[in-house]
């Protein structure tokens, strides 16, 4: 367990000293959302109507942006080889790196989301549920993304391939995430959507590290 935490700590340390990855994801998120009022016009009712979907799609793309680097640096400098030879199971390595990725890129998105919701004139009733869906949803994005990052390791133009592999798998998360907010705004209960989102997280938590670990073992061979 200490080894697991040391790996998470090391990755956070690296991300914070390099600085760029974390801030790029959240800046991309903000810019992406800010573009919409320019595109669809400043009509408050229209913006309020599309706010949930826009914020969720932007969050999805922002999380995808930094995923390519998830294993890339460790793969290129030989660290991944050494990690695979350590007594820490490969699944734990994946989980630790994914957790660090989420803390660095997912959490800032959750913090920024309510501000953007104000910008898009979303009804204040939806703010709580927006944060809640992102809190459950963004870890799923990181987990599913880790599979794509592991599979495209060493491939040329891995980033493009990664998007093509992963975006279709993000669709259920998007549907239930945006659906929960819409339900809450229309006076319905968001509970079923949240439960489905929770079940996706419960499924991804053991399955994604397992699949990524298998892909990484292939990559270091």
């Amino acid at each position: 367990m200490t080894r697991f935490l040391r790996l998470v700590g090391r990755d956070l340390h690296l991300a914070l000293r390099q600085g760029s990855d974390a801030s790029i994801a959240v800046m991309f998120f903000v810019l992406c959302v800010v573009l919409f009022p320019f595109g669809v016009g400043p009509e408050p009712n229209i913006l309020a109507r599309i706010a949930a979907g826009v914020i969720w799609v932007a969050a999805l793309l922002a999380s995808l942006l930094s995923l390519e680097r998830l294993f890339q640096n460790d793969y290129e400098d030989g660290s991944l080889e050494l990690l695979s030879l350590s007594t820490l199971p490969m699944e734990a390595v994946v989980l630790a790196k994914t957790l660090a990725h989420w803390l660095v890129t997912g959490v800032p998105l959750i913090v920024a989301a309510p501000l953007l919701a104000v910008l898009l004139n979303m009804n204040a009733e939806g703010f709580g549920i927006l944060v809640l869906t992102l809190l459950v949803g963004t870890p799923i994005l990181s987990l599913i993304g880790s599979i794509g990052a592991a599979l495209t390791l060493g491939a040329r133009r891995g980033g493009v391939l990664l998007s093509l592999l992963i975006l279709p798998l993000y669709i259920p998360v998007l549907i239930f995430g945006a659906g929960a907010i819409d339900a809450a705004l229309n006076g319905l209960t968001p509970r079923p959507h949240l439960l489905l989102l929770g079940s996706l997280l419960a499924g991804a938590l053991p399955l994604a590290p397992w699949a990524s670990a298998a892909a990484l073992r292939q990559a270091v061979e």
Binding site: R10, H13, L14, R17, Q18, E76, D77, G78, S79, E81, L82, L85, S86, T87, P89
Partner: peptide, 20 residues
């Protein structure tokens, strides 16, 4: 697992992180 705990492997790559 037992095997991994008793080996040290030094390959061609140095696994040195530039910011640490």
């Amino acid at each position: 697992d037992g095997h991994r705990s008793r080996i040290h492997y030094v390959g061609h790559l140095d696994a040195v992180k530039p910011v640490l």
